[in-house]
């Protein structure tokens, strides 16, 4: 294993056992996050991007959710020979080990800051709690100074006053900054950002994206950035995984993905958004249909019922594999599949 891999996910499956049936929210996802780099995960609601993130931190509520398969390997040492990786998927979600990782080595920021701040305590107390919990060498008397320093680092003005403010007293943008300050208070190796700018205004969103990029450069942490906004992904990500109904359908380096999108779903997403720097189109090129109900996922390729390149007899028969089509570029589509010879012939004769 290359030593620059920080987190390695292999064939992760997180299923929810509900009365109505089994929801395969994450159904065989594999990817790697490299140290200091940003992996962007893009997809629409129900594609499993947030469940993937919650699985890493073991925050999936159980029951009904369960990691039924796969490994989530956290490579701590800088050199592979040094230290055995920890398999987060095997840890007890309430155990001491995952709790020592959560918020310290891997931390998370959410779309809605109020989900990570409790309303009853001041911002400062909550940041101090996180510091004291994870850094035993910090004295209680110094924690407040550290909290103020953390707030200052994320560009909060008058940090020595804001530290005593309650979350509701701050604006949305400031709350988001404070949440980032809390997430970074223990210098994590990996920051999971789940739609961190979706609830913000565009000018504030721009500020937060700049802040995250600057902090990443400064502290060298890896980031897993989840969003549905293609513009945001283009800006922050080094590599991108596109998810659809619990599976990665396309994965590549960010430039390659935007220059040469191959999966019909990725192409559809890129085509469907209005591009502000281009000539206005009379109509938007929408993707047909809707994301299917999780209990009624089509047979074969999950995107087959909406796909403009749908090949009857092929796409509705089997799930295509995630195959490499170029250096570092993988696509889950029979248009590119070379594994099943018989099916490939059908694809060529289209």
């Amino acid at each position: 294993m290359a030593h620059d891999t920080l987190l390695e996910i292999r064939d992760l499956m997180t299923h929810f056992h509900l009365q109505e049936g089994i929801v395969r929210a994450v159904d065989g996802v594999s990817f790697e996050i490299r140290r200091g780099r940003t992996l962007g995960i893009i997809g629409e609601s129900g594609c499993g991007k947030s469940v993937t993130a919650n699985s890493i931190l073991r925050l999936v509520p159980s029951p009904p959710g369960n990691i039924v398969n796969g490994r989530i390997l956290l490579h701590r040492g800088d050199d592979s020979s040094d230290q055995e990786p920890v398999d987060l998927a095997r840890l007890d979600p309430r155990g001491a080990e995952i709790r020592s990782i959560r918020g310290a080595e891997i931390s998370m920021v959410f779309q809605e800051p109020m989900t990570s701040f409790g309303p009853m305590h001041t911002i400062g107390n909550q940041i101090m709690e996180s510091i004291l919990l994870h850094q035993s060498d910090v004295a209680a008397s110094d924690a407040r100074e550290l909290a103020i320093e953390n707030l200052r680092r994320v560009g909060i003005p008058r940090a020595e006053q804001i530290v005593d403010a309650y979350p509701h007293q701050l604006s949305g943008g400031m709350r988001q900054r404070a949440m980032i300050a809390m997430a970074l208070s223990c210098s994590p190796r990996l920051l999971i950002a789940d739609e961190p700018t979706t609830a913000l205004d565009v000018t504030i969103q721009a500020q937060i994206l700049e802040l995250l990029t600057a902090l990443q450069e400064e502290f060298g942490m890896a980031v897993m950035f989840i969003t549905h906004n293609l513009g945001v992904i283009a800006e922050v990500a080094d590599e991108v995984a596109v998810m659809y109904l619990g599976r990665i359908v396309e994965q590549s380096d960010v430039n390659e993905l935007f220059d040469n999108p191959q999966h019909p779903y990725t192409q559809g997403l890129l085509n469907s958004i209005p591009h502000i720097d281009e000539e206005k189109l009379p109509r938007l090129r929408a993707i047909e249909g809707v994301v299917p109900d999780p209990y009624e996922i089509p047979r074969g390729c999950a995107f087959s019922d909406r796909c403009p390149s749908f090949m009857p007899g092929t796409c509705d028969r089997a799930m295509p594999g995630l195959d490499e089509t170029g250096p570092g570029h993988r696509v889950r589509c029979f248009l590119f599949s070379e594994f099943e010879d018989e099916l490939t012939e059908v694809a060529d004769g289209r």
Binding site: V202, Q205, G231, I233, A234, E235, V254, I273, I276, D277
Partner: peptide
């Protein structure tokens, strides 16, 4: 200017 653009280059 604040609109995020889908052009990574």
């Amino acid at each position: 200017s604040a609109v995020p653009r889908p052009y990574p280059h």
